[in-house]
Simulated assay, not measured.
Amino acid sequence: MLSRPRRNRHSATIRGLIRETELLPSHLVQPIFLMPDPNARLPVQSLPGTFRLGIEEVVIEVGECIKLGIHSFIMFPAVPEEHKNKTGTYATSHENFYLHAATRLKKEYPDICLVSDVALDPYSSDGHDGVVINGKIDNDETLLLLDAMSVAQAKAGFDIIGPSDMMDGRIGSIRRALDEEGFTDVAIMSYCAKFASAFYGPFRDALDSAPRLLEDVPTDKKSYQMDPANRREALREAALDAAEGADYLMVKPAINYLDIIRDLHQAHPLPVAAYHVSGECAMLLAAAERGWLDYEAAATEALLSIKRAGADVIITYFAKDYASWWKSGRV
């Protein structure tokens, strides 16, 4: 008997009936770049359509996203140079605009899920995720600072703490610090497989968080972010973080690491998050601007591929656009 799979493709209704992968706005997390000026709205030139926003603009942006079905947000601070030093002390300062913004957002929209960023690089005069001592990133000295940063963020109202630093042992250390302060319900989204990728450029432009060209400071993050050539190492990192108390396991970047997403999805019962990073999005946007790709079709396909690989949660700069297409019934 001749098999004809096309019988299940000849109408949109039938295709929808057997569609294997469904991507909803509720699966997406919208990134937010926060500025200290409350009314700021500055474009990120290397990531068209993305802005660095002050809290008043963020309140409006979050409200628009909620109307489209997006209720989860990850926020990153663009810290002025005068607030940066070698140990990132502004991260826990009572004056930190990032912490005040989180409190404001949770007051305005109590039901949103707000994810933090835990690493020194936004606050460090060296531009690294950890403390630089004698030309090296000191792992254990960094943990103490990450613990304090995580507790400060939990107090500010963040629902999920997002350690992006890739220091060894930081999940267990942060979990203990949160629990000791009574934040047992605050979750941890571990960047367990964060690769030393070439695709972070627009993000670093937005936050001015690239390593600095200074004497006795490493010029890249390869001593703590993972080698893009490695696959089994990601499974080991995920296993360690899961054992230490992680609530989510994240892969970053996403499109170039779909195999890692699949590996973690198959190996662990924890939810898997994927960060569809700035460079991955910027490439598609640049091609679409030149008419080489259809933005809506290509962005939808990219996001579906991440979901199909096994990601439960997708952080993407396309979240708001995709949600609008979904709401209008176009995807």
Rank of each mutant, 00 (worst) to 15 (best):
R170P: 02
S150Q: 01
I315Y: 04
M226F: 13
S223N: 04
F199R: 06
D220K: 07
H10K: 09
V118D: 01
A148F: 02
H128T: 06
D259Q: 13
I133D: 09
E22I: 03
A91I: 01
A91W: 00
A311Q: 01
A288F: 11
Y257G: 05
A193Y: 12
V44S: 10
E81R: 10
A319M: 00
R170K: 13
V79E: 08
R308M: 06
F33W: 14
V118H: 01
W325H: 10
D227C: 07
D294L: 01
Y98S: 06
I174P: 00
L17D: 12
Q266H: 11
T21W: 14
S209N: 11
S305D: 10
I314P: 11
Q45S: 07
E237A: 12
S305C: 14
N139G: 14
L34I: 02
E61V: 09
G310L: 10
G54L: 09
I133V: 15
R175W: 00
E57Q: 12
F203G: 03
D140H: 08
P211T: 06
A311T: 04
F318A: 15
L23W: 09
I60T: 15
F318N: 09
I306L: 10
L2Y: 08
S124F: 06
M35V: 05
G245Q: 04
E233L: 14
G130D: 02
Q153W: 03
E233Y: 08
L105E: 06
G162I: 03
D208H: 13
R170M: 07
D185A: 01
F195C: 00
K221A: 10
K194F: 04
V151H: 02
L207R: 00
L23V: 11
R7C: 01
D165A: 08
S164Q: 08
D126F: 15
L114P: 00
T219G: 15
K136Y: 13
H83W: 14
I74M: 12
T92V: 10
S125L: 06
D208T: 13
A297P: 02
A243G: 04
I161H: 01
D37W: 06
L34N: 05
S150T: 01
T21D: 14
R9L: 13
R19F: 09
V62R: 09
F76I: 02
Q266N: 15
H27W: 06
S324L: 04
